[in-house]
Amino acid sequence: MISNAKIARINELAAKAKAGVITEEEKAEQQKLRQEYLK
């Protein structure tokens, strides 16, 4: 099960992506976390 901290990070990265200020490194982290969440 995914931790609350990881869910919070997913939401934080989603907000950054929506604002258009996300880095390529953060995009990769976001994809990794989303895949983990979906498992």
Rank of each mutant, 00 (worst) to 15 (best):
M1S: 11
M1N: 13
M1A: 12
M1L: 12
M1W: 09
M1V: 10
I2L: 12
I2K: 06
I2W: 07
I2Q: 07
S3P: 10
S3M: 08
S3Y: 04
S3Q: 10
S3R: 06
S3C: 14
S3W: 04
N4F: 08
N4H: 14
N4W: 07
A5D: 12
A5Q: 12
A5T: 12
A5G: 08
K6T: 13
K6R: 09
K6H: 11
K6V: 15
I7E: 05
I7M: 12
A8I: 12
A8H: 11
A8K: 13
A8N: 10
A8Q: 12
A8E: 08
A8G: 06
A8T: 08
R9T: 01
R9Y: 02
R9C: 01
R9W: 02
R9L: 03
R9S: 01
I10D: 02
I10R: 04
I10P: 00
N11E: 11
N11L: 15
N11P: 00
N11F: 15
E12A: 07
E12Q: 11
E12G: 03
L13P: 01
L13G: 00
L13T: 00
L13Y: 02
A14G: 04
A14H: 07
A14R: 13
A14F: 12
A14P: 00
A14Q: 10
A14L: 09
A14K: 09
A14S: 08
A14N: 12
A15P: 00
A15H: 06
K16Q: 02
K16A: 04
K16S: 02
A17M: 10
A17I: 04
A17H: 06
A17N: 04
A17R: 10
K18A: 14
K18D: 09
A19N: 11
A19D: 06
G20R: 04
V21W: 08
V21H: 08
V21C: 08
I22R: 02
I22P: 02
I22L: 14
I22T: 02
I22W: 03
T23N: 05
T23E: 02
T23F: 01
T23S: 10
E24D: 10
E24L: 08
E24F: 05
E24Y: 05
E24G: 05
E24V: 10
E25G: 05
E25N: 06
E25Y: 05
E25W: 06
E25H: 05
E25Q: 08
E25I: 07
E26Q: 03
E26Y: 01
E26W: 01
K27L: 11
K27P: 00
K27Y: 11
K27F: 07
K27A: 09
K27G: 03
K27I: 12
A28M: 11
A28E: 14
A28G: 05
A28C: 10
A28K: 13
A28L: 13
E29C: 03
E29N: 01
E29R: 02
E29D: 02
E29Y: 03
E29S: 02
E29P: 00
E29K: 02
E29L: 04
Q30L: 15
Q30G: 04
Q31S: 10
Q31R: 14
K32N: 06
K32W: 11
K32T: 09
K32E: 09
K32H: 05
L33E: 00
L33N: 01
L33A: 02
L33V: 02
R34H: 13
R34K: 08
R34T: 12
R34Q: 12
R34S: 07
R34G: 04
R34W: 15
Q35G: 06
Q35H: 11
Q35M: 13
Q35D: 14
Q35A: 13
Q35Y: 11
Q35R: 15
E36S: 04
E36R: 06
E36L: 09
E36C: 15
E36Y: 07
E36W: 13
E36P: 03
Y37R: 06
Y37F: 11
Y37V: 09
Y37Q: 08
Y37I: 13
L38G: 08
L38R: 11
L38A: 13
L38N: 12
L38E: 14
L38W: 12
K39P: 09
K39S: 14
K39H: 14
K39D: 14
K39Q: 14
